Computed example of a mutant assay.
Amino acid sequence: MAVVLFNQEENKRTEVKIHNGHTILRAAKQGRVALKHKCGGKASCTTCKVEIKDQANISPPLPIEEMRLGEENIKNGFRLSCQTKVYGKVEVKMPEDPFKARIRELLKQQEK
Rank of each mutant, 00 (worst) to 15 (best):
E96N: 10
A34P: 09
F99L: 11
V3F: 07
N73R: 14
A56W: 06
P63T: 15
L107D: 01
G70P: 00
C45M: 02
G70H: 00
C48S: 12
K42C: 08
A27N: 06
K108Q: 11
E105C: 03
C48A: 12
L5W: 13
K12H: 02
G70K: 00
E66F: 01
A28H: 04
E9T: 04
P60H: 14
G31W: 10
C39Q: 03
G21I: 11
C45G: 04
E71D: 02
K89A: 03
K49G: 00
T14W: 03
L62A: 11
E66D: 13
Q8K: 03
T46S: 15
A2N: 01
P95V: 13
C82P: 10
K75F: 09
R26E: 13
L80D: 03
K100R: 14
E91Q: 10
E91Y: 03
E71N: 04
K85N: 02
K89E: 08
Q30E: 09
I24A: 07
V33H: 00
C39K: 02
R13T: 14
H37Y: 15
N20K: 13
Q110V: 05
M67I: 04
E65Q: 13
G31T: 02
L106K: 14
R32N: 12
K49V: 09
K42G: 03
F78I: 09
I58Y: 13
N7F: 10
F6R: 00
F6P: 00
C48N: 12
C82R: 06
G41F: 07
A34M: 14
T84W: 10
Y87Q: 09
G77C: 08
V16M: 05
Q83K: 06
K112Q: 08
E9D: 08
I103A: 15
D97I: 08
V92Y: 10
L107W: 09
G21Q: 15
D97K: 03
S59Q: 14
C45A: 04
I24K: 06
D97V: 04
N73S: 15
M1P: 08
R104C: 01
G70E: 00
G40K: 12
H19Q: 14
R68H: 11
Q55E: 12
A27M: 12
K89Y: 04
N76Y: 02
K12A: 02
S81R: 01
N57V: 02
R102Q: 14
V4T: 07
N73D: 12
L106A: 15
A34S: 15
F6K: 00
E51G: 05
M67Q: 06
H37V: 13
K12I: 10
I18V: 12
K93W: 06
I74D: 04
Q8Y: 07
F6L: 01
L25A: 07
T84K: 06
R68Y: 09
K38T: 15
C82F: 06
L62H: 11
I64D: 04
H19V: 05
A101H: 12
K36Q: 02
I64C: 11
E111Q: 14
V4Y: 06
C39Y: 04
R32P: 03
R104A: 03
E15S: 15
V16N: 03
K38Y: 05
V3E: 08
G31I: 08
K108P: 01
G41R: 11
Q8E: 06
L5R: 04
I64Q: 12
